[in-house]
Deep mutational scan, measured.
Amino acid sequence: GIPATNLSRVAGLEKQLAIELKVKQGAENMIQTYSNGSTKDRKLLLTAQQMLQDSKTKIDIIRMQLRRALQ
């Protein structure tokens, strides 16, 4: 079985993952909103794209940590 310490770690990672998935969803929504907007929305679009990139990276890292914890 999986050690108890790993189980609480997994629960924490799953919570983090859920949050990051919401951030990713929000960033994707912002990108959709701003991509057909005016030029003043360009900065917001770039910010949203950066957020999305960061979020995807975090999600990958969390998933990797989850896999390790579940081994």
Rank of each mutant, 00 (worst) to 15 (best):
I31F: 02
T57H: 12
Q32F: 04
K40A: 12
Y34F: 09
G12D: 14
I59R: 00
S55N: 02
A4F: 02
T39F: 09
L7G: 13
L66C: 02
Q53E: 11
S8N: 13
P3M: 06
I19F: 10
E20M: 13
Q65L: 14
A69T: 05
A48V: 03
P3G: 09
A27P: 00
A27I: 14
Q71P: 03
V23S: 03
T57Q: 12
V23E: 02
L70S: 05
K15W: 06
D41G: 03
L70A: 06
I31G: 01
S8V: 07
A4D: 11
M64I: 07
I62E: 00
M51V: 07
L52A: 02
L66W: 01
R42V: 11
K56H: 04
G37D: 11
L45Y: 04
R67Y: 11
I61P: 00
Q71S: 11
G37W: 01
I19D: 11
T33S: 12
Q32W: 06
M64N: 09
M51W: 04
D41I: 02
S38D: 14
R9N: 11
T47D: 11
G1H: 11
S38F: 09
K58L: 03
K40V: 09
E20I: 09
S35I: 11
T5M: 07
N6P: 10
G37V: 05
T57Y: 05
I31T: 01
I62G: 00
K43G: 09
L45E: 02
G37E: 05
S8D: 15
I19S: 08
S8M: 06
G12F: 15
T39D: 11
S55Y: 01
Q32C: 12
I59V: 03
A18F: 06
K24I: 07
I31N: 01
A69S: 03
S8C: 15
Y34R: 01
T57G: 05
Q71K: 07
M64G: 08
K22D: 05
L17P: 00
S35P: 03
I19Q: 09
K22N: 07
I31D: 00
Q49P: 00
R9H: 14
K22T: 07
A4G: 12
N29M: 08
T5N: 12
E28K: 04
L45R: 02
R9D: 11
G37H: 04
S8H: 12
R68Y: 15
E28S: 03
I2R: 09
G1Q: 09
D60G: 09
K58G: 01
R9Y: 15
E14N: 10
R67D: 12
I59Y: 01
Q25P: 00
Q16P: 00
E14V: 15
S8G: 10
L66S: 00
Q53K: 11
Q49R: 09
G26E: 14
L7P: 14
R63L: 10
A18C: 14
I61W: 06
R42S: 15
L17N: 00
G1I: 10
Q50L: 09
M51I: 08
K58A: 06
T33R: 13
